[in-house]
Simulated scan of single mutants.
Amino acid sequence: MSRGHRAVSHIAGIEVEAWADTREECLAEAVRALVETITDVGDAVPDDCVVLVSAEEDDETLLAAVLGEVIRQAEGRRVAVDVSVDERTKTTQGQIEVRLATVTMADHLRTAPMAVAMYGLRFGRTAGAWRAHVNVEVRDT
């Protein structure tokens, strides 16, 4: 299976969907979908990096936490232009490390995300592939 994503604007906000062979790839695709919806990063070169280490109990909580950080970064006028996700090993087994390579936004946001909505949030393995679905609440810009 290939990986990919889509995001659709609707009255209540943004609906993000992502799919991939692995949990890590699917999580990264969800980040890309949200970023592409809120602003145009073009071929910007990152100048900073945010590292999140999470030991969330379930996959849906992990998805909400990572997208929540993307939203917090956008509120501070930073946007993720690249994302990588790795399972940590040895003494930190069971943790996930997410690296968001960020850049200061030159232009304003197309859409101002406020929060990840917990209703309708899904992230898990379905029919042999990882799939994510999340609604993001937005405010008028």
Rank of each mutant, 00 (worst) to 15 (best):
M1F: 00
S2K: 05
R3Y: 01
R3T: 03
G4Q: 01
H5R: 11
H5S: 03
A7H: 01
S9E: 09
I11Y: 07
G13Y: 00
I14N: 06
E17L: 05
A18F: 04
A20Y: 02
A20K: 00
T22W: 03
T22F: 09
R23L: 15
R23P: 01
E24R: 10
E24S: 08
E24L: 13
E24G: 04
E25C: 09
E25Y: 01
C26S: 09
L27E: 11
L27I: 03
A28T: 11
A30C: 11
V31W: 11
V35R: 13
I38M: 14
T39E: 03
D40G: 04
D40R: 07
V41N: 02
G42M: 06
D43G: 07
A44Y: 05
A44W: 03
P46L: 08
P46K: 02
P46T: 02
P46A: 09
D47F: 00
D48G: 15
D48L: 02
C49N: 06
L52W: 10
L52G: 05
S54W: 02
A55H: 13
E56P: 10
E57Y: 04
E57T: 15
E57V: 10
D58Q: 12
D59H: 09
D59N: 07
D59L: 04
L62Q: 04
L62M: 06
A64K: 03
A65F: 00
L67F: 05
G68E: 02
G68H: 08
E69G: 02
V70H: 04
V70R: 01
V70Q: 03
I71K: 01
I71A: 01
A74Q: 12
E75S: 08
G76V: 08
R78W: 07
R78L: 10
V79L: 08
D82M: 07
D82C: 02
V83E: 06
D86F: 06
D86L: 06
E87N: 04
R88W: 10
R88A: 11
K90M: 09
K90C: 09
T91D: 15
T91E: 14
T92D: 15
T92M: 13
T92P: 02
T92W: 07
Q93C: 13
G94T: 09
I96A: 10
I96D: 12
R99C: 11
M105D: 08
D107H: 14
R110Y: 14
T111M: 14
A112H: 08
P113W: 08
P113S: 03
A115R: 07
V116E: 10
A117T: 09
A117V: 10
A117W: 07
M118D: 09
Y119V: 03
L121G: 04
F123Y: 11
F123H: 04
G124V: 03
G124I: 04
G124K: 05
T126K: 03
G128I: 06
R131N: 13
R131G: 01
A132K: 06
N135D: 08
V136T: 12
V136C: 10
V136L: 10
V138H: 13
V138L: 13
V138S: 14
R139K: 15
D140M: 13
